[in-house]
């Protein structure tokens, strides 16, 4: 088995006095798409934010290519080739579509060119001078992913990219994630939509109360969908 690109060991995190993560362990290998599933409030977003250095009170270990990154400032972590597509898209209301797209600096070679992005999402070109938040939810999600692909990130942390989107847009996001996978981009995905997750992911981690309790294959998720949906409270 190849060495993990991202390795998380005994990750614990706190918001003030309140502990949110109780020892998360997970591995993501190069080129994989791995999903974190679990009901709201179990610590999925906190796990992504902790990896990204966005939570000040953390303990444990997070390594990228074997080097420890826990405790590093988040801008330095990003420069190591990690991109983030945040919950609720994180489109800036004070910036145009083009400014939103060009905001993340290029952190590595091999990022998607604006031509490629505009070819795939012509709406981002057509509405490049509109305010970013004036786009529809689906278009904003495309923009949120596109700006990270432009930066050249090789590991992308995606937080609920299908949340609140129409099925046709969910399919477009699925195609986009599969495109990223073909490009060799590694993805750690937080997702509640199990059908979407099984179509794009290689493996799934089930999270309960701030810990990983089970690793599931696609077949296991499909086989146990009813049980898992009940578990997720969806």
């Amino acid at each position: 088995m190849p060495e993990a690109l991202l390795s998380v060991r005994n990750l614990q995190a706190w918001y003030d006095e309140s502990q949110a993560l109780f020892g998360v362990d997970l591995d993501v290998r190069e080129g994989e798409v791995v999903t974190l599933v679990g009901r709201n409030g179990v610590g999925k977003t906190t796990t992504l934010k902790s990896i990204m250095g966005m939570i000040p009170s953390v303990k444990g270990s997070v390594t990228l290519h074997g080097s420890e990154i826990l405790g590093m400032p988040s801008h330095k972590i990003a420069r190591l080739g990690i991109g983030v597509v945040p919950e609720e898209r994180g489109i800036f209301s004070g910036l145009t579509v083009r400014e939103n797209l060009m905001l993340p600096p290029v952190i590595a070679d091999g990022g998607w060119s604006t031509e490629r992005i505009y070819k795939l999402f012509p709406i981002l070109d057509e509405r490049k001078n509109s305010i970013g938040t004036k786009l529809s939810g689906g278009e904003q999600q495309m923009l949120a992913v596109a700006r990270i692909l432009r930066s050249g990130a090789r590991l992308v942390l995606m937080d609920e990219p299908t949340e609140g989107l129409a099925p046709v847009i969910v399919n477009a996001i699925r195609d986009l994630v599969l495109d990223m996978k073909r490009d060799g981009i590694t993805v750690l995905l937080v997702e509640q939509n199990l059908r979407f997750a099984t179509k794009v992911s290689d493996r799934h981690y089930l999270m309960v109360h701030g810990k990983i309790v089970e690793t599931l294959s696609n077949e296991e998720v499909v086989h146990r969908e009813g049980e898992l949906l009940a578990h997720l409270g969806v």
């Binding site: 988040s74 801008h75 990003a78 983030v84 800036f92 004070g94 910036l95 400014e99 952190i107």
Partner: peptide, 17 residues
Amino acid sequence: ATLRAATENPGLVRAFG
């Protein structure tokens, strides 16, 4: 644009590098 974005959500701008 970076400045305006950082005014809106400094944590996310920092996570972009």
